[in-house]
């Protein structure tokens, strides 16, 4: 399936979860937050939240900011 991961088009295997998407960017889980199609997915649900074709996933972390 094709989806948008942090604004970049990606192919992922059918059945991939939020946890898989996060793992493709970072091995860390602390200090990371995820939204799928603009809805927050709590960390406890990453492994069980399946992604679908066309999903927009935002994987976010701390950045310098005032």
């Amino acid at each position: 399936m094709e989806l948008m991961l942090n604004g970049i088009r990606q192919s992922m295997l059918d059945g991939a979860t939020v946890a898989d998407a996060v793992a493709s960017l970072t091995t860390r889980t602390r200090g990371v937050a995820v939204a799928v199609n603009s809805e927050v997915v709590p960390q406890a649900g990453w492994a069980t939240t399946a992604l679908a074709d066309g999903d927009r996933i935002e994987v976010l972390t701390a950045a310098q900011g005032g």
Partner: peptide, 23 residues
């Protein structure tokens, strides 16, 4: 201290966690 929330971007140099470790 304040922090912002931005996309994890390992290629662009924004790995997850570095800033938080310092704080």
């Amino acid at each position: 201290v304040t922090v912002a929330l931005r996309r994890v971007d390992p290629v662009g140099g924004r790995a997850a966690g570095g800033l938080l470790e310092i704080l």
